[in-house]
C-alpha cells in the first residue's frame, strides 16, 4: 500500500502547490492595477492626502511580498482583511454567505448526483434507442441554455403563473429547515437541470467507453447475464470515471452558483462577489476568488485521489 500512499501524497502536494500559485496570482493581479488600489478605489477626483491616508491604512507603503505573506497567513485563519467600502471584516461578511452557498450547492448535488448517474447508466445501456436520442437532445438543450434562461423560465412558470414557489430566495435568520428547502427550491432546481444534463452525458460516455473493452465482451461470451456484466464487470472498473464525473460537476456547480444566485437574489458568496466586482471592493473579490478556487481544486483533487484509490493495478501491486 505504500505505493498508493506515495502517489496520493504526491497528488496532494501538487494540489497544495497549485493553490499556492493561484493565491499568488490572485494577490498580485490586484497589484497590476494602474496606480495602486487606493488610487483605483478613490478615483481620479481624490486628493493626494486622502489617497495617502488610504495607502497608510492599507499598509501599501510596505513591499508587496511582505503584504502577500501577511494576507496569506490571515487567509489561512479565515481573516481576509476589511472591506474597502463598508469597513467590515471580510471574514465576517463571507462566513454566513459561504454557508448559504454551500447549502445551495449541496442541495442541488443531493438531487442531481443520484438521478443523473442512474439515468446516465440507463441511457448507456439503451444506447441508440429512441429514449437515448430523446435524452441526448434534451441534455444538449439543457447544457446549451444559460443558467439565467432556465432560472427565469422556472420563475415565470413555478412562481408567477402557478404560484408554487417563491421567486426570491430571501433567507431569514431563524427559519426552519423545511422552509429553507422550500425557498431555495427554484435556484437549486435550476442548477440541477444544468448539472444533471452534464453528468448524464459524461456518465453515459464513461460507461459506453467501458462496455467496449474486451473483458466485457469476454464476460458476455462467458454467458454472463446482462445485469451481472454491469454489476460485476463494468461497475468495479467504472468507479474512477464516475467519481471523476461527480467531482467535475460539483466543481461546475461552484461556478454556476454565481449566476443562479444573482437571478434569484440568493444571499450567497456568488452574489457578494459580483457586487464586489462592480464596486471594486478588492479584499472581498480576492477572498471570494480564493475560496472558489480552493473548492474547485479540492474537488478535482478528490477526483484524482478517488481514481487512484479505485485503480486495481495500484491497489494490488505486483
Amino acid at each position: 500500500m505504500s505505493g498508493v500512499l506515495g502517489i496520493v501524497l504526491k497528488r496532494l502536494g501538487l494540489g497544495l502547490l497549485t493553490l499556492l500559485i493561484i493565491s499568488i496570482l490572485i494577490f498580485f493581479a490586484v497589484e497590476l492595477l494602474p496606480g495602486d488600489i487606493a488610487q483605483a478605489v478613490l478615483g481620479q477626483g481624490a486628493t493626494e492626502e486622502t489617497v495617502n491616508a488610504m495607502r497608510q491604512q492599507l499598509g501599501l507603503d510596505r513591499p508587496a511580498p511582505v503584504r502577500y505573506l501577511e494576507w496569506l497567513a490571515g487567509a489561512v485563519q479565515g481573516d481576509f482583511g476589511v472591506s474597502l467600502i463598508s469597513g467590515n471584516s471580510v471574514g465576517n461578511v463571507i462566513g454566513p454567505r459561504f454557508l448559504n452557498t454551500l447549502f445551495l450547492a449541496g442541495y442541488a448535488a443531493l438531487i442531481a448526483v443520484p438521478i443523473s448517474i442512474i439515468l446516465g447508466v440507463i441511457v448507456a445501456l439503451l444506447r441508440n434507442s429512441l429514449f437515448d436520442r430523446v435524452a441526448n437532445v434534451m441534455t444538449l438543450t439543457s447544457i446549451s441554455s444559460p443558467e439565467f434562461f432556465l432560472g427565469y423560465i422556472l420563475i415565470l412558470y413555478f412562481s408567477v403563473q402557478w404560484d408554487m414557489f417563491p421567486s426570491l430566495a430571501s433567507l431569514g435568520p431563524d427559519i426552519s429547515i423545511g422552509e429553507y428547502l422550500y425557498r431555495a427550491f427554484l435556484p437549486a432546481l435550476t442548477m440541477v437541470l444544468v448539472v444533471t444534463a452534464h453528468m448524464m452525458r459524461m456518465t453515459r460516455a464513461a460507461i459506453i467507453n467501458l462496455l467496449a473493452s474486451p473483458y466485457i465482451e469476454m464476460a458476455r461470451l462467458k454467458g454472463t447475464p446482462a445485469w451481472k456484466v454491469i454489476v460485476f464487470h463494468a461497475l468495479p472498473n467504472a468507479w474512477a470515471p464516475i467519481i471523476n464525473v461527480v467531482a467535475l460537476n460539483l466543481a461546475y456547480l461552484i461556478t454556476g452558483v454565481v449566476l443562479v444566485e444573482v437571478v434569484f437574489v440568493y444571499p450567497g458568496i456568488g452574489q457578494l462577489l459580483v457586487d464586489a466586482v462592480s464596486k471594486r471592493d478588492f479584499p472581498i473579490v480576492q477572498a471570494c476568488c480564493l475560496i472558489f478556487a480552493a473548492t474547485f481544486i479540492l474537488l478535482n483533487l478528490t477526483a484524482d485521489v478517488g481514481a487512484i484509490l479505485t485503480n486495481p493495478r495500484l491497489r494490488h501491486p505486483k
Binding site: 465482451e217 469476454m218 460485476f232 464487470h233 468495479p236 486495481p312
Partner: peptide
C-alpha cells in the same frame, strides 16, 4: 481471446 491481458477484468 487474442489478448488475454485485455480480456481479463482488471478489477477481479
Amino acid at each position: 481471446a487474442q489478448s488475454a491481458a485485455a480480456s481479463f477484468n482488471p478489477a477481479q
